[in-house]
Amino acid sequence: MTTSDASRRLADIESRFDRAAALAARPAGSATLIAVSKTQPVEAITPLIDAGQRVFGENRVQEAQAKWPALLEKTSGLALHLIGQLQSNKAEDAVALFDAIHSVDRPSLIAALARAMAKIGKRPACFLQVNIGDEPQKGGVPTAGLAALVVAARAAELPLAGLMCLPPADLEPAPYFALLAKLARDHGLDGLSMGMSGDFETAVAIGATHVRVGSALFGPRA
């Protein structure tokens, strides 16, 4: 992908963001585009950086450690978000590298992150991942357990930014996004990390503040 290709794809996504926001009477730029760079090599990421994209998402701590330190050193103003599941024993590495963590889903991880933040002196924004469809194969706290997890996160003084979800595949996502928005309101949280390449316009219209887009920017994964 060349820089001109990346610029064209970014412009298309941003215009679709703005149209979806306008339909919902939201201001343009009210949702942050996270370019999901998991499994993508540095050669594919660099054109998007050159085109002006500044927020990227990775699924695995080790993969991010292998490719991002050099990119972060080369370009100022980049932000890196962890959007995949996080093992508690990787909490310190995650806190050191990432600016936000979208997959906080259990008390043991809250405790590990709180210890890591106290040790390192860095406080990435944290989103609680909700298993919004209560699917047994997915990560995230069940909707019935969210209230207790919010209490635990606040007691640990995590920098709680909001909620994240992945709606069930092959079902209309709007009801699940609306439920996440309601849960966030109920708990006094502003951030909504929801929506991907196939449904981000719906997510933006319902109030997403962070949208995770991969294939629409990078093309289909091998």
Score class of each variant (00 low, 15 high):
M1R: 13
T3G: 08
S7V: 08
L10M: 07
L10G: 00
L10D: 04
R16F: 12
D18L: 00
R19P: 00
A21G: 12
A25F: 11
R26G: 06
A28H: 11
G29K: 05
K38L: 13
V42Y: 09
E43M: 00
T46C: 09
A51M: 10
N59A: 13
V61G: 06
A64H: 01
W68A: 07
P69N: 06
T75G: 03
T75Q: 15
S76V: 07
A79Q: 15
Q87S: 05
Q87Y: 13
F98E: 00
F98N: 00
F98V: 01
D99S: 08
I101T: 04
V104A: 09
D105I: 08
P107R: 14
S108V: 13
A111L: 14
A111E: 15
A112V: 13
A116H: 06
A116L: 10
R123Q: 14
C126K: 06
F127V: 10
F127T: 13
L128F: 09
L128K: 05
Q129L: 07
D134P: 03
E135T: 12
E135K: 14
P136F: 06
P136Q: 08
K138E: 14
K138S: 05
G139I: 02
L146A: 01
A147H: 11
A147G: 11
L149R: 06
V150E: 00
R154T: 06
R154W: 00
R154Q: 14
A155D: 14
A156R: 11
A156C: 02
E157K: 15
L158R: 00
L158C: 10
L160W: 04
A161C: 02
A161S: 12
M164K: 07
C165M: 06
P167G: 02
E172S: 12
P173G: 07
Y176M: 01
L180S: 10
A181S: 15
K182H: 12
R185N: 13
G188V: 11
L189N: 11
D190S: 15
G191P: 09
L192D: 01
M196Y: 12
E201H: 01
T202A: 15
T202Y: 06
T202R: 10
A208W: 04
H210E: 14
R212D: 04
G214D: 05
G214K: 10
A216Y: 02
L217C: 08
G219L: 02
